[in-house]
């Protein structure tokens, strides 16, 4: 079982609005993005922890919140979970005192370097790739995190138990299922795997269509 964010294939959302074009539709959207990135630069969590904090919003909140409301609500939750802010401080809108992490604050002069340095996820791994480009593989039957109940994973529900063909090998990358939960980076081989749309959605899908996903080796088994 995965969570509310895992919506690929869902029915009922209505048309896409191509006119909904803005990067920041409101000024506070930009502030929410910037505060989130600045807090990330404190180095207290990684991108997988951060994604999982958004996924852990209640389905009700996830659905009713706009995009950047999800970001800032998840950020508030993370700050409290990491003892960086207290619930009392959030409630009062006032700090109770300076933070022990203040020496890690991102300064304006560092922004360009931090953004251009990025955060690559490719790593050396002791796990050897077992699949070749061109080979057929099957995704595991359940999408959920194998080791943490309700935990983070990047195998969407719609692509479980499906047979596809490896089209690219990306090297070994940090495994989000471990990295989101303090279980180390656990890097392993990552592949792009192509699935015919008919194999995912049935005979109503166009035969000329395919969906390609990036999947870690532990999500896959030989056919």
């Amino acid at each position: 079982m995965t969570r509310v964010h895992d919506m690929g294939g869902r029915f009922g959302d209505g048309p896409v609005d191509p006119q909904d074009n803005a990067t920041f539709a409101q000024d506070w959207h930009a502030r929410a993005l910037a505060v989130t990135l600045a807090c990330g630069a404190l180095g207290q969590w990684n991108i997988d922890v951060s994604r999982h904090s958004r996924e852990r919003l209640s389905p009700k909140d996830y659905t009713r919140f706009s995009y950047y409301e999800k970001w800032m609500s998840a950020l508030a939750d993370l700050l409290v979970e990491h003892d960086i802010l207290s619930v009392e401080e959030l409630r009062e809108g006032q700090a109770e005192g300076p933070s022990a992490l203040a020496d890690k604050m991102l300064k304006a002069a560092q922004v360009a370097n931090v953004l251009s340095a990025g955060g690559p996820s490719e790593r050396e791994s002791t796990i050897k790739p077992t699949f070749q480009v061109g080979e057929y593989v099957k995704t595991r039957k359940r999408a959920g995190n194998e080791n943490v109940e309700g935990g983070h994973t990047r195998l969407p529900n719609y692509a479980t138990g499906a047979v596809g063909q490896v089209v690219l090998y990306h090297g070994s990358h940090v495994l989000p299922d471990a990295s989101a939960h303090g279980l180390g980076e656990a890097p392993e081989p990552l592949y792009a795997v192509a699935f015919s749309s008919q194999s995912l959605w049935g005979k109503t899908a166009n035969t000329a269509d395919e969906v390609i996903l990036d999947l870690w080796q532990s999500y896959l088994e030989p056919v």
């Binding site: 920041f24 930009a30 502030r31 993005l33 910037a34 505060v35 990135l37 600045a38 807090c39 404190l42 700050l79 960086i84 802010l85 401080e89 959030l90 809108g93 006032q94 700090a95 005192g97 300076p98 933070s99 992490l101 203040a102 890690k104 604050m105 991102l106 300064k107 304006a108 560092q110 922004v111 360009a112 953004l115």
Partner: peptide, 18 residues
Amino acid sequence: TILTQKGLIDPAALDEII
């Protein structure tokens, strides 16, 4: 506001990111 008071974010850095 809270994060700025705690010395965790620099409003000038936020402007730079935006």
